[in-house]
Design a protein around this nucleic acid. Structure first.
Lengths: 197, 197
DNA sequence: TTGGAAAAGTTGACTCGTTGCACTTTTGCA
DNA sequence: TGCAAAAGTGCAACGAGTCAACTTTTCCAA
């Protein structure tokens, strides 16, 4: 909504927030997540620890950009899909369009290392996706015209939101996403063995 | 393994553990999970807080029986399946055989209410399943003769272990489990609309 | 322009889960 | 019987997160 924060107030607030996030990420990358305390971050950003928690819901949240509207994008992808396109294909395309570019960002590697090497962050990142199962599931159910708690819709939503988690850390993320969507579309079959050496 | 703990030592240890778990569950059910502190539980069980953590890895673990060998049961279900049975069918049968009876236990309702109404416990319960994705995925890959990190196997393991999470809280758990396995077997299709009223 | 309301930030004490340490008691066993 | 290991204790401490009272900054309307 407010792409450029307008008033001085909001600008300063955003600046403080950014200063905290920057200090946190730098310290985390330098020393490792568990070796950095909230007080270290607060000192580095020259604010109090209470201010840190006014801007971020917890220590893990310091590392990730806010969700904001991931859920609305997901539901929009389902609701406003091209006519004749299946829900599954719409989701496939949405994941390919929005998630791949972000995950492929080059200077992402040290950040990815940090997350992968810290269980708390791995779990938090996973929850950032799975948090939206209810919303996505409701959107799917609406499109089809069934109850919001329809089992097939709930299951599909859960499975689809697992895909970025599974594809993360693969060399060819695009191929991985496609392959998993194929499983959901056509059913699972044992992958073919490689020829014996 | 040690179905009846033998020595006096092990019996006493088991008794202490049980006393702690019982005190914790009772207090949680009475006041709610967040309204009970570790110190309350330790007092009720007449032990020190340090002893609580000698027996349980954390507050959430006080509520659940230990895993122990869920993972080995899962991998065994895949590895020792009837000849000619598909991996998916073996997993389907295993989930139906081992998980349904536990989840259907009658006095489970207040326990289920507790878990459902406490986010921390919901997440912990979910992790109790998803923790075994690597083991299950490796077993599947071994059976087929592909690498342990084979994408289709990792994805299947993740999806299958989501099934108890999804089916939880459904009126007819058996039907739910079957339906979700059908999705994995045959691919997802939009469920049919109910007839208009 | 100014006066105040509201937002942002500070401070410090506090709760709570969890750990570490030094110590005592209990138990198993040689 | 004696002794080492296991179990448990008591207590202090740590780090994340909260709370309440207070100060500063910013906005805006009379």
């Amino acid at each position: 909504m407010t792409v450029p924060p307008v008033g001085r107030r909001e600008r300063k607030k955003a600046a403080t927030r950014q200063a905290i996030a920057d200090a946190a990420l730098q310290l985390f990358l330098e020393r490792g997540y568990d070796q950095v305390g909230i007080r270290d971050i607060a000192d580095a950003a020259d604010v109090s620890t209470a201010t840190v928690f006014k801007h971020f819901s917890g220590k893990e949240a310091l590392v990730f950009d806010e969700d904001e509207d991931r859920e609305s994008e997901l539901t929009a992808a389902v609701r406003q899909r091209a006519s004749g396109q299946s829900i599954l294909d719409a989701l496939r395309q949405h994941v390919l369009d929005t998630w791949l570019p972000i995950a492929a960002h080059p200077q992402m590697t040290e950040f990815t290392n940090l997350v992968d090497s810290t269980p708390a962050l791995r779990e938090y990142a996973e929850r950032m996706w799975t948090r939206h199962t209810d919303g996505l599931s409701a959107a799917i159910a609406d499109e089809i015209g069934v109850d919001h708690d329809n089992l097939a819709c709930v299951a599909l939503a859960r499975f689809v939101l697992q895909i970025p988690v599974i594809a993360r850390g693969r060399q060819d993320r695009r191929a991985a996403v496609e392959e998993i969507f194929d499983i959901l579309t056509q059913g699972w079959e044992p992958p073919s063995k490689p020829p014996a050496p």
